[in-house]
Design a protein around this nucleic acid. Structure first.
Lengths: 140, 140
DNA sequence: TATTTTTTGTTTCATTTGAAACTATTTACC
DNA sequence: GGTAAATAGTTTCAAATGAAACAAAAAATA
């Protein structure tokens, strides 16, 4: 049995390489980590939502969401407001600084992905897309 | 920009699902974690090697290797012996309990992989193999 | 040979993580 | 309405992680 031929091992190495590369890049360029980046993207598309909703959309743990939101408020990228119907919850949305940040981060992220995908042929890109979908269906 | 369509995000979610599934399974079935499992596999194929060599083969950090070896010796799956030429280093190999464990773990791991791959067509398996190789070349 | 540099492996420290416990509030049910 | 159960979010705790500092030995160099 060869570890380097073992699929779960290969996938984890691969994903680690990609994640680490991105994490480092974002930390250097924008001073944000992966959790923060994910939450920012979600708030960009979904203004005025609660931590609970962010947790559902990102599939991230609620503790992590809580901490990430706290950090993003401290860094002054988000505004908090009391939820009108639920005193336990708060709504979050990007403030001006946050929107400004995202106007830099998003093209950068897309450029990173594009650069990665540009090294694949059209056929390979289709295969990749298909396989990811298939695995997600298999693994639930 | 949709997070769910963003390749690096998809890959990390996918790999996390697979890794977590395996980690849980091994903890339940054999009481070993992923680090221990990787080191055991390597020692199965490469008896009598040093921590340094294991680190190279597994691409795992030397601190993590040091701790994993300590734990595996405590659990009585490995024997340590002084390296004949280098007083700083020790050689490690599976002892009888370790070999016995591996005779259970390996078929189990292969069954897991086979089950995953059996849900792909022959064509999809080839594509997967090809894409993993390609990404590894791209990412260095 | 003596001294500097490199290498192997461990320990210390700070950070990240999530499970479990907790608070506060809301919803369900009698 | 009043109590029990569920829910949103935070804090506490312990485990995992790796960078940096460290000790010991080997290799390189003078």
């Amino acid at each position: 049995m060869d570890l380097n031929q073992f699929l779960p091992y290969q996938l984890s190495i691969l994903s680690l390489k990609i994640s680490n590369g991105i994490a480092e890049h974002y930390q250097d360029q924008f001073g944000i980590n992966i959790s923060e980046w994910r939450v920012l993207i979600i708030l960009y598309k979904n203004p005025d939502i609660t931590a609970k909703k962010i947790s559902q959309l990102s599939q991230m743990d609620k503790v992590r969401i809580s901490r990430t939101l706290k950090s993003l408020v401290q860094k002054d990228y988000l505004t908090q407001s009391q939820h009108p119907l639920d005193a336990r919850a708060k709504n979050y949305e990007l403030n001006q600084r946050g929107r400004y940040l995202m106007r830099a981060v998003i093209p950068d992220a897309l450029r990173y992905e594009e650069n990665l995908l540009s090294q694949l042929s059209e056929e390979e890109r289709e295969q990749l897309h298909h396989l990811i979908g298939k695995f997600n269906r298999i693994l639930g």
